[in-house]
């Protein structure tokens, strides 16, 4: 009974451990420390998005616009971080900015997009699915418009530090940023009134209203936080690719939703954990890294990823069914 409970609660962690274990045994290249760090590094961007997505989905929402929000944040961020000598600059007369400027701008743009999403949902009453589906195209359109459809590149060297710098000689900066996001989101969800209210809204929105919770404000805040994390992810993205492409991060919302879902966040709201989102993102990252290293055909990789999402959700549903 006890073992069964642990299995049902931490089953998905077990899947991750088994995956890593099997890969370590069969592939000497996988188990190299440098590669294991790669796995973490490659989980960062959709991992950060999955954190925000967890909040959104617990609150019974969804965000189909995170991919294009990321792209919009990225091109605007990069445009303020170009070298003075870059050709085809968005702002030809802009002097080189200290790196904090493009970073703050990226975060700000993310928050604004999130607030717009939240306003659509809170004040018009349209479902989050529709509001963010619209925003998916709108944000992508703004990204293309802003950049003229072309990538923004030739960035100041500080972005290189963000993308490939190491702290203490081993910890990649993006992983550090991811860890900070995990910690902040964890505290936010577990130790603040805001977090408790997110669960409450997802669990029973009417009861939440009666309990004195300002639901509209909460929806705005939840979406703003998602936008903020999209901005953070955009900064990491720009750092990693040293450029920003308006077509970037297409489909990332689905990876983020899938990671969240594998991690046990219920699409019907009210259930979900931060560690679940982290484990979900890691499973994706391990899968992609491992399959490439094993030389598995790329077409098969996509098929396997799809199955993993379904299996993950099946495990999750069984877990919840047992409790009900």
């Amino acid at each position: 009974m006890k073992a069964k409970e642990i299995l049902s609660k931490y089953g998905i962690v077990l899947v991750l451990v088994i995956m890593v274990g099997v890969l370590c045994i069969v592939s000497p290249n996988f188990r190299k420390p440098a590669n294991l760090m790669n796995v973490l590094l490659q989980a960062c961007i959709f991992g950060i998005l999955a954190l925000g997505m967890t909040l959104v989905i617990i609150g019974k929402g969804t965000d189909l616009a995170v991919g294009s929000t990321l792209a919009l944040c990225a091109v605007i961020c990069a445009s303020f971080g170009q070298k003075a000598s870059a050709s085809g600059k968005i702002f030809p007369n802009l002097p080189e900015m200290p790196v904090i400027v493009p970073i703050l701008i990226a975060l700000l743009v993310g928050v604004v997009v999130g607030l717009v999403n939240g306003s659509f949902i809170a004040f018009t009453g349209i479902p989050a699915f529709i509001a963010t589906l619209g925003m998916q195209t709108i944000a992508r359109g703004f990204a293309l418009l802003y950049s003229g459809g072309k990538p923004v590149s030739t960035l100041i060297p500080a972005f290189k530090t963000i993308g490939s710098g190491r702290v203490f000689g081993f910890l990649p900066v993006p992983v550090l940023i991811y860890l900070i996001c995990i910690a902040v989101t964890w505290v936010l969800l577990n130790n603040t009134r805001f977090g408790k209210r997110v669960y409450a809204i997802g669990g029973n929105v009417q009861a939440a209203e009666v309990s004195g919770i300002n639901v509209k404000k909460m929806i705005l805040l939840i979406n703003a936080y998602m936008g903020l994390l999209a901005g953070v992810a955009a900064v990491v993205f720009v750092g990693r690719t040293q450029s920003a492409h308006p077509g970037a991060a297409t489909g990332y919302e689905l990876t983020a939703i899938a990671s969240t879902t594998i991690g046990g966040t219920s699409q019907s709201g009210g259930i979900g954990t931060v560690w679940g989102a982290v484990v979900g993102a890691l499973i994706f990252s391990v899968l992609r890294n491992g399959m490439t290293i094993l030389g598995i055909d790329a077409y098969w990789q996509q098929i396997v990823e799809g199955f993993v999402v379904i299996i993950g959700v099946v495990i999750d549903m069984r877990k919840n069914a047992r409790k009900a």
């Binding site: 190299k32 790669n38 961007i45 990538p151 990693r240 690719t241 450029s243 970037a248 890294n289 490439t292």
Partner: peptide, 29 residues
């Protein structure tokens, strides 16, 4: 997806390839 390609290249290097052939997703980045 340039990020996916970046990961692919990192994974190749971890896998110990002797050389890289790349059709860049984003030739300007």
């Amino acid at each position: 997806d340039e990020m996916k390609q970046m990961s692919d290249i990192e994974n190749f290097i971890a896998d110990g390839v002797d050389a890289l052939i790349v059709i860049p997703v984003n030739p300007q980045g």
